[in-house]
């Protein structure tokens, strides 16, 4: 069963979770044998930018011990043989620096999405 998870919402609760919960969920599914692929769209394409830094957050003396490192999480997914796609137009609209993207992200045009979807048994938007 081929699963495509579309991640559209970005930086939702990532500071208190120290993760993106959807990237995490899909990594957990992969660890359990699921054949998942990820499509980053909308603001979530920004997860592909290397060097994101959420360190230093504190509430009074309560520090966030392990801030999310979403670019590294994507790299780990790619290393675990999860295909990670990102919508090309969304990358361009947000002027993501081409030389700063996580290696291994595959760009997909909006026009190409319907055809890409056909390759999957399940398409889940989170």
């Amino acid at each position: 069963m081929k699963i495509l998870s579309i991640v559209d919402t970005a930086y939702r609760a990532t500071l208190e979770e120290q993760d993106d919960t959807i990237l995490w969920l899909n990594h957990a599914l992969r660890n359990n044998g699921a054949e998942v692929s990820i499509l980053l769209s909308g603001n979530a394409v920004n997860y592909a930018v290397r060097g994101q830094d959420a360190a230093g957050l504190a509430f009074g003396d309560r520090r966030v011990a392990h801030p999310p490192r979403l670019d590294e999480d994507l790299a780990r997914l790619i290393a675990a043989k999860v295909a990670v796609f990102a919508v090309e137009e969304d990358i361009r609209e947000r002027a993501l620096p081409a030389d700063s993207l996580v290696a291994g992200i595959e760009k997909l045009s909006r026009a190409g999405i319907p055809e890409a979807i056909e390759r999957f048994d399940q398409v889940w938007r989170w």
Binding site: M1, A28, L29, G33
Partner: peptide
């Protein structure tokens, strides 16, 4: 449960 249970149900 866990994501594993979700995946088992999906299957």
């Amino acid at each position: 449960g866990s994501p594993k249970d979700f995946f088992e149900a999906v299957k």
